[in-house]
């Protein structure tokens, strides 16, 4: 895992904030430390993403966090050309990826693919998390591992 100083997308998109009820505070805190964590049930060890109020397998409300390696598999991608938000007017195209995390029961995370927006990513390519630090939050982006 590494960090990135150049942003994938320009400023002006909605700024992520932890939920008021604290449900996902640990995730956002961990990204500031450049750690990737996934919600995991303390009773049955099931993973789930995004964070949920109870475990979908055993219904326990005793949920914790599990730190993962940050390695994943590029499950799908789309290159977006149409600016659907004013902040993206000069930022197209950009690539949105869905990444599966094998060390967290293949839960999927969404991010941008770091690098040339015109690249042709290979399905199932190995990717790694890249932490993109902003003023008050850190985003998790993905880079193809050669």
């Amino acid at each position: 895992m590494s960090s990135e100083t150049k942003y994938c997308l320009p400023e002006g998109l909605p700024l992520p904030r932890a939920q008021r009820d604290g449900l996902d505070k640990e995730f956002w805190d961990a990204t500031r430390r450049h750690e990737l964590v996934v919600q995991r049930c303390k009773s049955c060890n099931a993973f789930q993403w995004g964070p949920e109020q109870i475990c979908h397998k055993c219904y326990s409300a005793d949920l914790g966090w599990h730190r993962v390696s940050g390695r994943g598999r590029l499950y799908s991608w789309t290159r977006t050309w149409n600016p659907v938000h004013p902040a993206l007017r000069d930022a197209c195209p950009y690539i949105v990826v869905v990444v599966e995390l094998p060390d967290a029961d293949n839960v999927r995370m969404v991010g941008n693919l770091v690098g040339d927006p015109h690249q042709q990513p290979r399905f199932d390519a190995e990717v790694e998390a890249v932490f993109e630090d902003h003023t008050a939050h850190t985003l998790v982006q993905w880079r193809i591992v050669n």
């Binding site: 997308l9 909605p14 992520p16 950009y94 969404v110």
Partner: peptide, 8 residues
């Protein structure tokens, strides 16, 4: 919050 900052 897990999608919008990535332009999704």
């Amino acid at each position: 919050a897990y999608t919008a900052p990535y332009g999704l």
